[in-house]
Simulated assay, not measured.
Amino acid sequence: MSVLEKPAAPAAAAPPQPPKRWKRHEVIAGYGFLTPWLIGFFGLTAVPMLASLYLSFTRYNLFGAPEWIGLDNYLLLFEDPQFRQAAKVTLMYAVIGTPLKLAAALAIAMLLNSKRRGQGFYRSVFYAPSLIGASVSIAIVWRALFIDDGIVDRIGSGVGLDWGGWIGNPSLVMPMFVLLTTWQFGAPMVIFLAGLKQVPNELYEAAAVDGAGRWRKFVSITLPMLSPVIFFNLLLEAIHSFQIFSSAFIISNGTGAPAGSSLFYTLYLYLRGFQDFRMGYASAMAWVLVLVVGALTFVMFKTSNAWVHYGGDER
């Protein structure tokens, strides 16, 4: 062997492998911890979903045996004017309410991002409506505020605006529901606030040296850096907007009045299933909603590559 050649280093010893029986015990323990979740998933989610899928192809009134009718329920949906009205109302609510809610959440998050005395208190105050906003009690209070001769109507009359109650006015019902969902901006606000904490301050300092103003910093730094958070909030709030039920049921007294202006999709599904006992028809409505939300989610993920920028992207 040449003097210039170094002897090969001895191969590193392989780490000792645990006995197979240990691995088996770990797998058993893991499934043991998962068992409660698996029971809940199959018992409360998967099996009921499969049952509703079967019922959507049947005529079923809760009291007799399901009668197979094929695609008749799905075909009847698109001939039902109330179904189209419910889809229209829900889509309008999602298109208007979701962006306004996220805009309010982002604006308040940016205000709370700066260090100031009592910051924790202000965060708690702004988050509080999200803890109680979807409850029945808040829906009852909201109805009392906007009925004819309610507080909001009295304030309007005091400044010369005769609304006659928002709940009884078909043109004002949707703004009332949009205002309610916008008021519940606490959850996306907290997520935006966490995202703002991750934006490096050096980017703003460099932009200030280049002469960028607040608007330029917001457009060129804040929005691109927050794009994953915006996408996450947008996806969640869009899905939630299709699930509105309790506030619509309480405020409209379970009727969708006036003139169907508060007939949201889930409310109409409830009326057909538990008022008319057309469970097959209601199940078909539920699966149409699942397909619509699934398609919306798919489209959002596919289009996110054009505007969502993650750390390490070269775009």
Rank of each mutant, 00 (worst) to 15 (best):
V292L: 02
D313M: 10
F277Q: 05
I155P: 15
S246Y: 11
I191W: 06
N169S: 03
I39S: 06
K197T: 14
V159W: 09
N61D: 04
S262V: 13
P36T: 01
P19K: 14
L193C: 14
V3T: 15
F264G: 03
G280V: 05
I69Q: 02
A105N: 07
S52I: 00
Y268T: 05
V89T: 00
G133H: 01
T58S: 07
R214Y: 03
K23T: 10
R84P: 00
W307G: 11
G150N: 00
I138D: 10
W166R: 03
L223F: 07
A295Q: 03
P224I: 08
Q184E: 09
Y93I: 12
R272D: 00
A238M: 15
S56Q: 04
E314H: 04
P15Y: 04
G312H: 01
V229E: 09
V3W: 03
A208Q: 10
P18I: 11
S262R: 04
V190I: 14
G273C: 01
A284E: 05
T35V: 02
L269Q: 03
A128D: 07
L193Y: 13
A206R: 02
L263Q: 06
M285A: 02
R123C: 00
G168N: 11
N201I: 11
F177H: 13
A206I: 02
I132A: 03
E79W: 12
R214Q: 00
M1Y: 13
A206Y: 10
G120H: 02
S283G: 01
M176D: 09
L77F: 09
L112C: 12
F146D: 05
S261D: 02
N253F: 14
S135G: 08
D149W: 01
D313R: 09
I221S: 14
P99Y: 09
G186W: 02
G256D: 12
N233S: 06
L269E: 04
A51T: 12
A11I: 13
E205T: 09
S241R: 08
L62D: 10
G273M: 02
G211W: 00
G158Q: 12
A257S: 11
A8H: 14
Y122W: 08
D148R: 15
A248V: 06
P48W: 06
P81M: 12
S137Q: 05
W307E: 13
D162H: 06
L102M: 02
V293K: 01
F231S: 10
V3N: 13
L161E: 07
S241A: 07
L180V: 10
R272E: 04
A139N: 08
